[in-house]
Design a binder for these strands. Structure first.
Lengths: 222, 222
DNA sequence: CGACTCCTTGACAGCGTTCAACAGTAGTGG
DNA sequence: CCACTACTGTTGAACGCTGTCAAGGAGTCG
């Protein structure tokens, strides 16, 4: 049987969005990051803009004692590391081996076209982080986990089989939970028949009941 | 004895920032909102930009069952309601009787000067919400409350007596806690000699030990 | 005066964390 | 190749932080 599976690779072969953003004349380079290596660090100068070609990247903040809050996961096609200010406010590193295109940021803000594109992108990340506030401040573990699954499902274009690149700890640090709670919640969903967990590392998920998941994400009504 | 107290009024008499933002030729109007009335609603067209003259405003999102997450408190001088997109993503209403200046947003994006000012402001709110993520996802009630007090202290320019315009419930909905937890945490700080709670409605706070509060906000070491 | 709001405080419950054990997998180096 | 270690994920048990429920006081307003 043939099923559609997310391949973790962007369909396009040229970084079109990145090109329109930084201008036609700009140079972009391809770069590979090994699993776990840092793409950029918090408070470092934001000299480059990145577009993910293959793999997965997380951006996060750390507390002194090691507590971590992941702000976003970046999937193939996503542009990240684009700051209004001149320094990065998150650390970014590769969750799995990843390929990115990067271009110098200095070419930005030269014309209104690029500014409009920049605003659109900043807007997108602002909207994401604003929605995440509500999740972190006011939602239960069931709601958070359901919301995470639906977000990934949507961004991977609802594959029959969803391969998650990130660990349970990554998910937990994204949702403001512990990895045990995430694991338990996924087990509950499995027992309820909402999803199946496959793969040797339990990172392949098949969603059986998206509407039910959506109801849980909104108000926690079982 | 004379002490400096925050007066809840902006020092300037003209909305200079707002004028530079929307252009010299733009018209702005003054408007009053009674305590509890809505300035704008989530998903409404973002046709106006606001600057608070006097009072206090909260911006928030609601869940269907009434749970609320306040994204920000706005104090005199603050510009708010400025969106990149064309609709508001939070509801805004007056915490106490408030006076705002408002100007049509359409005059924005006409030139690079206004765009730069806009970017700067959007950047500021993005930074605030990104820091709030870490607070909501990974900090304890003590850390959150300490962070709140220090934020207000800083924004009111460290008054000897800090008059909070918002209720315990507002603080709780900002910090992702319940009002009881906020009340208890403030009592702990009072018992520890970190602050005093004054006033008939317990909304006047004197900070005695800002360094200790700062230590708590960062890592919860008592 | 009565109704309402706001804040504090106590008692208790529960959700999520912490601690722990175990199993399976990946990675490494002999 | 295998042995060894590190990592990842699941699950159970107990704890504790925070939420829930409740009572009471004080201020506000009509």
């Amino acid at each position: 049987m043939l099923v559609r599976v997310n391949t973790n690779t962007s369909p396009e072969c040229v970084p079109t969005e990145l090109t329109t953003l930084v201008g036609e004349t700009s140079l972009w380079h391809q770069f590979r990051y090994r699993r776990g290596t840092e793409v950029f660090g918090e408070a470092e100068p934001a000299d480059y803009v990145y577009q993910l070609r293959e793999g997965a990247v997380r951006t996060y903040k750390l507390l002194v004692d090691g507590r971590r809050q992941i702000g976003a996961f970046h999937l193939p096609g996503d542009i990240f590391g684009l700051e209004n200010g001149d320094v990065h406010r998150f650390t970014a590193d590769a969750i799995i081996d990843s390929t990115v295109w990067l271009a110098r940021r200095e070419s930005l803000f030269r014309g209104l076209t690029e500014v409009a594109a920049t605003l659109k992108l900043v807007n997108k990340s602002l909207e994401h982080v604003q929605n995440h506030l509500l999740l972190l401040g006011r939602q239960t573990s069931l709601e958070r986990t359901a919301a995470f699954l639906l977000e990934m499902d949507r961004r991977l274009e609802q594959p029959a089989l969803m391969h998650l690149p990130m660990s349970r700890r990554d998910i937990a640090d994204y949702l403001g939970l512990t990895l045990e709670t995430v694991s338990r919640t996924l087990s509950i969903f499995r027992q309820e028949g909402i999803l199946s967990i496959l793969g040797q590392r339990y990172r392949e998920i098949v969603l059986h009941d998206r509407p039910k998941l959506a109801r849980i994400a909104r108000s926690c009504e079982f």
